[in-house]
């Protein structure tokens, strides 16, 4: 299929001789908003890093935009918002500078920033409603504002896919609502494919098209509405603390994954 953005077949990843991901197969089509959920240590970040080409699989095939993950031609096609909170608050860059860094794949080595690059960066800042703070040092923003800037940075290369790793942790409920609304809008206006890792299993189904649940293996992948109405999911979402034991690691189980 030509509108396949991510095609993972039988992916295995080991780090330090222990399995992190096992026999994961996952297909993501263009324009789909996928919510990736699962317990801590379930391998969600690792799966994203495989898709981004930062972690090499031990076994299996990972095709992104029809090319092996990490292929240089995929640069700029993927915007990434990493999980860890921003560390160095004293770093001497402005909001504008940070978003300009995301423009790098379109600028490249030895080249200088053009006025077109500046226009694109401003446009992304407007899209996340942060253009009024463009000259602020990045360290002087609130957590939610920083998150918006990092989304603008991920958008700055005009990507076709957004990869977001728990972007709403530390963001208040109202801002979270606004954030999902913004993502939905961006997804439609830029016809983006979105992969979003989140622990907000209460809200995720309402904002995504599909949901996948990962704990070493991929336990379920399907339309959010179907997943929502499935009995197994009701068990999990109806009662948030419900934890089933599956193998050695206790985790939330939604059901077996079927292709």
């Amino acid at each position: 299929m030509s509108d396949l953005v991510v095609d993972i077949k039988d992916l295995w990843v080991t780090l330090n001789h222990s399995f992190i991901l096992r026999e994961v197969s996952l297909r993501i089509h263009q324009g789909v908003f996928l919510g990736l959920i699962g317990p801590n240590g379930g391998g969600k970040t690792t799966l994203l890093q495989v898709i981004l080409g930062l972690v090499k699989p031990d076994r299996g095939q990972v095709q992104v935009f029809g090319r092996p993950a990490g292929h240089h031609k995929n640069r700029g096609l993927i915007g990434y918002v990493p999980q860890r909170a921003f560390a160095d608050l004293a770093f001497p860059v402005t909001v504008f500078d940070v978003v300009m860094m995301g423009r790098y794949p379109r600028i490249g080595l030895w080249h200088r920033v053009t006025s077109q690059d500046r226009d694109r960066v401003l446009q992304k800042l407007e899209a996340v409603e942060m253009d009024h703070l463009r000259d602020r040092p990045i360290g002087q923003l609130s957590g939610g504002e920083q998150q918006r800037v990092f989304i603008a940075r991920a958008l700055a290369s005009d990507p076709q896919m957004l990869v977001l790793d728990e972007p709403t942790s530390g963001v208040d409920n109202r801002a979270q609502g606004a954030f999902y609304h913004l993502l939905g809008e961006l997804k439609v206006s830029l016809s983006l494919t979105v992969i979003l890792v989140s622990h907000d299993i209460g809200v995720i189904p309402y904002h995504t098209d599909e949901i996948a649940c990962l704990n070493q293996k991929l336990y379920l992948h399907g339309k959010s509405t179907e997943v929502l109405s499935s009995e197994a999911l009701k068990k999990v979402y109806g009662c948030e603390v419900e934890v089933l034991v599956h193998g050695k690691i206790p985790h939330r189980v939604i059901g077996e994954h079927h292709d």
Partner: peptide
């Protein structure tokens, strides 16, 4: 500057 600020994202961006 990019890799001092955020090495992982710099790598994804092709630095």
């Amino acid at each position: 500057l990019f890799l001092s600020f955020d090495e992982e994202v710099a790598r994804v961006s092709g630095v």
